[in-house]
Design a protein around this nucleic acid. Structure first.
Lengths: 215, 215
DNA sequence: ACAACACTGTGACATGCATCACTGCCAGTC
DNA sequence: GACTGGCAGTGATGCATGTCACAGTGTTGT
């Protein structure tokens, strides 16, 4: 019988009020593993096998997609209180990951080994709801991502991207190069540079080397 | 106590081998409603409330997205043996639909009233798996849709679209105007016309009025 | 202090697609 | 058989963005 990890128990109670069942909390505290990632660290790469489901505690995680030719596209951020729906069935069906996840900031997660996913779904109502809600939220995010790629022009996409990044980093001063942003939006660096310049002219941002300040 | 509808029972057994639990089949046969839609009929529109989850039996359903300005974008087709993941939580949380579904062909579905969704998840292992698998498949489809919008040019997207449509209609002769295709791909009619012409020159399709033949 | 490098700015040009304007063509209706 | 409306083809033009080339400027390491 495994021990209940008091640290995890406290974290789950604090950050996951939606999974409040006592027995479930205990299970998580027994079986979960606390894991830390430094900002920029690749947590899970495209094509790798997923062995655990992450509950995000602190920090944030950037999720992106890459195609065969190495083109990249930012999808969304995962924040504390959320989990990666992509892992669920990837795990359960032992499939390769379709996405890449990178720690946006220094990030703390609780990793739940795959095998409990399914078991808990049957035993704990709140876990089932949590999983279903996560799926739904991610689907919505994906649809919104589609909206912006399909219907919006680069300037709007850029602004939206900056806002989301600011939210994920809890700071309106962003540290990023134009090239990095260009990769995330699958655009060219020059286009991003020019658009940022325009945003600066319009008084929406302030630019510095490696720094973008949202006003 | 409701009657077991033998017609539904037979349909479920035939088209949904993955939900083979006897008790579940009986439940579906008791609670499900057979519904028919003519090709082109709008099954559920953007913004409407979802009251049941559809199990597709025959035909196929086109799922698309629309933004505030009326721009449209085709997402994917639902085929026999599949269901609409978007409905799940839409139902369960009583949210408005984010998508529009239209019968691509004459289509037969079994509608499951919302309230059973959740109950069956707890009672029937195979229903739970079915729901989870559906979510996962839809997420994958969405990601693939994102891939093609983000990384591909219109000619590739068009070809892919035609192939998918042919599959959904089980026919390599498609009946569609250039304008309709243009709406689905969020492109202009002229662009589609020119690209189709090019595909014809390349010997990939044959064009007629209201007709596209895939070679 | 200097070299080397990473980041940013900018002009010239190419390309894909949208938009506009118009023509021609086919099909059904009177 | 002529009119009408929906569909398809096509040229001209414009705009957003990609691509290439290069210059300028800040940063870092020795």
């Amino acid at each position: 019988m495994q021990e209940i990890n008091q640290e995890i128990l406290a974290l789950v109670r604090k950050y996951y009020p939606q999974i409040a069942e006592r027995g479930l909390q205990d299970e998580i505290a027994k079986m979960g593993k606390v894991m830390q990632f430094k900002a920029g660290e690749v947590i899970m790469d495209f094509g790798s096998y997923v062995k655990l489901v992450p509950l995000i505690i602190e920090g944030s995680i950037k999720v992106s997609r890459e195609d065969e030719d190495g083109n990249e596209l930012f999808l969304y951020y995962l924040q504390p209180g959320e989990t990666c729906s992509m892992s669920f069935t990837c795990c359960m069906m032992n499939k390769k990951s379709e996405i890449r996840t990178i720690a946006e900031e220094d990030t703390l997660i609780i990793g739940i080994p795959t095998r409990f996913m399914d078991e808990w779904m049957g035993r704990f109502q709140s876990w089932k709801n949590f999983v279903m809600t996560s799926y739904d939220n991610r689907m919505l995010e994906l649809v919104r991502t589609i909206d912006s790629i399909a219907f919006k022009k680069m300037d709007e996409r850029l602004l939206q991207y900056l806002e989301r990044k600011a939210e994920a980093n809890k700071s309106r001063t962003l540290n990023a190069t134009h090239q990095e942003i260009a990769y995330d939006l699958n655009a060219s660096r020059e286009a991003i540079s020019r658009l940022l310049k325009q945003l600066e002219k319009d008084g929406l941002v302030e630019l510095g080397r490696n720094r973008i300040e949202l006003l």
